[in-house]
Structures are given as C-alpha cells and as structure tokens.
Simulated scan of single mutants.
Amino acid sequence: MMRLPASLFLLVLLLALTGCGGGNGEPGDQAADPAGGDAGDSTETKGTIGFSALTLTNPFFKVIADNMKEEAAKHGYEVLVVSGERDVKKQADQVSEFIVKGVSAIVLNPCDSQAIGPAIKKANDAGIPVFTNDIKYDGEVGEVVCHVATDNYQGGKLAGKAMVDLIGDSGGNVAILHFPQAESCQLRVKGFREVIDAHNAGDGAAQIEIVAVLDGGGVRDEGFKAAKDTIEANPDLAAIFAINDPSALGARAALEAAGKADQVKIIGFDGQKIGKQAILEGKIVCDPIQFPDRIGKATIEQIVRYFDGDEVPEEILIPSELYYQEDAKNDPELQE
C-alpha cells in the first residue's frame, strides 16, 4: 500500500475537519449538544436571593421559605435559606455571609425589629436590596425596599373580638403570651388590647381584665413555662391569648398538666396545621389564620418587580381570617 507523505496527510485531515462545520460552513456554528438542543439553554440562574428566617423550627417560616423557592424558580432565581434562630447577632452574621456570596437580594424575618438595623445598613452599603416579610424592621439605620406580611394589627383585633365573644358576657381574667421582640407580635397584641378596652368601656360590660403579659418566646417550651407561671399566679384565669400556635400549644400542655384544660380557654394565632388540628380537637378555640404561602409568593413577586425597574410598594398587608372548629371540620388540609 502506498503511504501518503506526512505533510499531505495532515492537509487532508485539516480539510476533512473543516468540512464538519454546520450551516454556513463555519466551524462551531453548531455547538456540541448531544441532545440536539440549543446551546444557549442553560441551567444557570439569574442570581441568588438570601433568606434568613426567624426560625425554621416553626413550620410557618418553612412554608414561607418553600413558597419563596418555588416562586423564585419560575423567574430564574435560587433562594438560599438559613435560620436566624431568634438570635439577632447570628442573623447579622448571616447577612454578612450573603454579602460575601454576592446575592442579588436579601430577605429577612428580623430576629429583633430594631437591632437588625446595622446589618441592613451593611447590605445597603454593598448595593444589595433588602426586603422583609412577616416581621417588619422598625428602625431608621437601614433601608428596606418592601415589607410583606399578614395584617397583624387587623388579626389582633380579630383575636380580641373572638375573646369578647368567648367570655364577654361573664368577664374574667386573661393572660397574653407575647413575643415582644417581633414587631408583628406587637401589632397583634395592640389590636387585641384595643378591642378588649373598647368592650370594657361599654356601659355595664362585664370586665375582661388582662392580668399578665408574659414573653412566651413564640415557641412551645417557653410557652409552656410562661403559661405555667401564669396559672400558678392567677388560679382564676379564664382565658389565654397566645401570639402564635407553638406558644398556644405550650400553654395547652401547661393547662393539662395543671388539670385546668377545661377551665382556661385558648385563642391562638397563625393557622399552622398543628394549630388547625388543635382547633379541630377542641384544644384551641380559634385562630386568626395567616397565609404564609401568599407571603412567600408575594415577596418574590416584589423582588422581581424591583429588578425589572417597576415601582414597588413599601408594604403589602394580607388580611387574616378567624378559623374555628367548624372551619377545621371542612378543611381539606386536615383530611390528608
């Protein structure tokens, strides 16, 4: 067999490779995509949104996080979720980490409505927009683009109305399990107090006396301890208003331990599945319920609007609704 000279062989090979170009004959006109798809299709996201939740041990905030992730994915963004665990220093460190990572936006449930200010300012200085949901930043150091939350003041008034409906005819002593560090809970208690005060101001009204306001921490264990102390100090207690479902369930456990579950009624707040189940079972009378799925979705919608250069409102409030045992009996979520 005749062998081609090496130089001629290389020339033939080069011509053959050039002939493999597509379309207009230019090499690389068709990028190698084994699936035959467009090489411009990419799994890369437009950016990352950092979310520091108050605590992920509370299912409410996990629902917000999950819905933020789902909605963000529709717009090409990822959401990096971390838990502040009610520690404002830890949350401030998380904001610093978000800045280092170069996130496109930051969302916070402030662990402390005022003390988180310097961390927000740090993000502002780095050119990263900050949004809040559920818990509002209540300070002047940093700047928040938009806050999305339940109308907590309206929800607190609903809780007050429920309490008046429950014991208004007879009156009685009431305790509040608070979480005063959170602006959202401050609004709930404010609305609740206003309705109770208005009832008490009525001619001949049986008085509803708020005899104790204790920090229940917004969690079950601390709610149990606070309720236990309240029961011991006020043996004639008629009812408890708890600012969320975990603290309400902690109060219920304390009442059961003290043998007073039938004496003291509980009104909670949230509408988490555990709270709805407790309402169905008669352990909690009712809740003004929130819609964390809507909060998460709306937060991402406003972030996208901001990125698109559209006008974004400073605050979006989602009304709550009273949820009783009859509602629980017809709730598809509890039939699963």
Rank of each mutant, 00 (worst) to 15 (best):
V79C: 13
G259V: 04
Y323P: 10
F61Y: 15
A126Q: 13
D66S: 14
L187D: 13
P180A: 14
K121H: 13
V189H: 02
N124F: 06
R193N: 12
I99A: 03
Q181Y: 00
L280Y: 06
D134H: 05
Q335R: 12
V264A: 03
I284S: 04
I208G: 00
C146S: 14
G191T: 04
H75M: 06
K69Q: 15
E326Y: 03
D112P: 05
A248L: 08
G155M: 03
L177A: 01
L14C: 06
T18R: 09
G259P: 04
E281L: 12
K62E: 04
D310W: 04
G127W: 09
S96I: 00
D165I: 06
G218C: 06
I99M: 10
K69E: 12
L214G: 02
R193G: 01
Q290P: 08
I167C: 03
A31M: 06
V130S: 03
R3E: 11
A31C: 05
R86A: 14
C286H: 01
D293K: 12
K74M: 05
D262P: 02
V95P: 13
G127S: 13
G76V: 07
Y153R: 06
G50D: 06
A328G: 14
D221C: 03
D165Q: 13
R294A: 10
A226I: 04
S113F: 00
V130W: 10
F241T: 14
